[in-house]
């Protein structure tokens, strides 16, 4: 089947099988390998992208279900070489070690700001229910998202 998407601001049409997951369409068909397949059970959130502005796990969505939708991946955040405020906050606060879960964390962080604004630490921790990190113990991830949320709210 042919799926039409707007990915990171660019209109694309891709030929996929009916059972192709969005994560595979992004990674294998469009070579956007920032979103990661971290688990096989839709629990880890490393594949999180924005579909029509809201965070979804792209491993729990068929490419066909996203037909006609706007998708933003980690690759679509930086503008003219400048990091998105949420990306910059992860760099500033060292919100990563191996980096595998980071794209999903950042996309969820952006969704969190959309819904909750400049959230406090407890809110950030509870909102991270669907994003797993096996390195950091979350301390710096929570710091980074809280700081990124403040920066985004301040910029808005």
């Amino acid at each position: 089947m042919t799926v039409a998407l707007r990915v990171n601001g660019e209109d694309v049409r891709i030929d996929v099988t009916d059972r192709t997951l969005l994560i595979h369409a992004l990674r294998d068909h469009l070579r956007l390998t920032g979103a990661h397949m971290g688990c096989d059970t839709s629990q880890c959130g490393a594949c999180t992208v924005l579909v029509d502005g809201v965070a979804v796990k792209s491993c729990a969505m068929l490419a066909g279900q996203a037909d006609g939708c706007e998708v933003v991946t980690i690759e679509g955040l930086a503008r003219d070489g400048a990091l998105h405020p949420m990306q910059a906050a992860f760099a500033e606060h060292h919100g990563l070690q191996c980096g595998f879960c980071t794209p999903g964390m950042i996309m969820l962080g952006i969704d969190l700001v959309r819904r909750r604004g400049a959230a406090d630490e407890a809110t950030v921790r509870s909102e991270l229910a669907g994003n797993l990190c096996r390195c950091t113990g979350y301390q710096n991830i929570v710091k980074a998202i809280a700081a990124g949320a403040r920066d985004m709210a301040g910029a808005a």
Binding site: K57, L108, D111, E127
Partner: peptide, 8 residues
Amino acid sequence: GDPQVRNR
């Protein structure tokens, strides 16, 4: 669930 699950 979690935020992503609630969005879908």
